Simulated scan of single mutants.
Amino acid sequence: MVSWQEQKSKKLPQNPLSLLVNRQRAWVEVDLDALGHNVCALKSWLNSATKLMAVVKADAYGHGAVTVAQTVLAHGADRVAIATLAEGVELRNSGITAPILILGAINAVEDIQAVAAWDLEATICNPEQAVVFNRTLARLDQFLTVHLKLDTGMSRLGTDWQSAVAFVSLVKSLSHLKIASVYSHFSTADEDDRKIMDLQHQRFQTAIAQLKAAGFTPPLIHLANSAATLGDRSTHYDMVRVGLALYGLYPAAHLTQVLKLKPVLQVKAKITQVKIIPPGEGVSYGRKFITQEATKIAVVGIGYADGVPRNLSNRLQAIVAGQLASQIGSITMDQLMLRVDHLPQVQPGDIVTLIGQQNQLKITADDWANKLETISWEILCGFKHRLPRIFV
Rank of each mutant, 00 (worst) to 15 (best):
Leu246Gly: 08
Ala207Arg: 09
Gln210Cys: 06
Asp232Arg: 07
Arg233Asn: 11
Pro218Asp: 04
Pro219Thr: 07
Val242Asp: 03
His222Ser: 07
Arg241Phe: 03
Ile221Lys: 06
Ala228Cys: 09
Leu230Ala: 00
Asn225Arg: 14
His201Leu: 04
Lys212Cys: 06
Ile208Tyr: 09
Met197Glu: 12
Pro219Tyr: 02
Leu230Gln: 03
Thr235Cys: 14
Gln200Phe: 00
Gly248Arg: 02
Ala227Gly: 07
Gly243Glu: 03
Met239Val: 13
Thr229Arg: 01
Ser226Trp: 13
Thr229Ile: 04
Val240Phe: 04
Tyr247His: 15
Gln200Asp: 03
Pro219Ala: 13
Leu199Asn: 04
Ala227Glu: 10
Asp198Pro: 10
Ala214Thr: 03
Arg241His: 10
Arg203Asn: 15
Gln210Lys: 09
Val240Cys: 07
Leu220Pro: 02
Ala228Leu: 11
Lys212Ser: 01
Tyr237Lys: 13
Leu244Phe: 07
Asp232Lys: 07
Leu223Cys: 11
Arg233Gly: 09
Arg233Tyr: 07
Ala209Ile: 09
Asp238Gly: 03
Ser226Asp: 08
Leu246Lys: 04
Ala228Pro: 08
Ala209Glu: 13
Gln205Tyr: 02
Val240Asn: 08
His222Pro: 13
Leu223Gln: 05
Ile221His: 09
Lys212Asp: 06
His201Ser: 15
Leu244Cys: 02
Pro219Phe: 03
Leu246Asp: 06
Ser234Asn: 14
Gly231Phe: 08
Ala209Trp: 05
Ala207Val: 08
Arg203Trp: 00
Pro218Arg: 06
Met197Asp: 00
Gly243Ile: 02
Asp238Ala: 12
Leu246Asn: 10
Ala213His: 08
Thr229Gln: 06
Ile221Cys: 06
His201Arg: 15
Ala214Leu: 00
Ala214Trp: 01
Ala207Pro: 11
Phe216Arg: 05
Tyr237Asn: 06
Leu244Met: 02
Arg241Met: 13
Gln200Leu: 00
Leu246Ile: 12
Phe216Thr: 05
Ile208Asn: 12
Gly248Cys: 00
Leu211Ala: 01
His236Tyr: 12
Thr206Ala: 14
Leu230Tyr: 09
Leu249Trp: 06
His236Arg: 06
Ala209Lys: 14
Ile208Leu: 14
Ala245Gly: 05
Leu244Asp: 01
Thr229Glu: 04
Phe204Lys: 01
Gly248Val: 00
Thr206Trp: 09
Gln205Thr: 13
Tyr237Arg: 10
